[in-house]
């Protein structure tokens, strides 16, 4: 059982060069070194990554779910921001 003084950490994995680190989950560890090792042991058992970040969960500033109207709804009416009105040649590949 993690004791109350075992901090929570968020784990980010970069799966390939050129991609960004993605959030994979969280874990408990006493300090940064052990957090990085635990991230390796918990989240990269099946070749998931080439690079790991661990960040103290307490360092994350989160939006308030109650603000979601103000924060996210105004974007719903602005469909012109999606680049879906262009024909992209097949040769361009994945964008």
């Amino acid at each position: 059982m993690p004791t109350p003084n075992t901090p929570l950490w968020e784990v980010f994995i970069r799966s390939r060069n050129g991609l960004s680190h993605r959030h994979a989950g969280s874990l408990h560890a006493a300090d940064a070194t052990l957090a990085l090792q635990a991230a390796r042991d918990l989240y990269t058992r099946r070749g998931e990554g080439l690079s790991l970040w661990v960040v103290p969960s307490s360092a994350i500033v989160a939006s308030d779910p109650q603000d979601k109207g103000m924060m996210f709804e105004p974007t719903a009416s602005k469909i012109y921001r999606h680049p879906t009105f262009y024909d992209i040649p097949d040769e361009v590949g994945h964008m």
């Binding site: 059982m1 993690p2 075992t6 874990l27 408990h28 560890a29 052990l34 090792q37 635990a38 042991d41 918990l42 058992r45």
Partner: peptide
Amino acid sequence: PTLEEEMALSN
């Protein structure tokens, strides 16, 4: 003692 160490030991 912890889930994290459980995995480390098994690995």
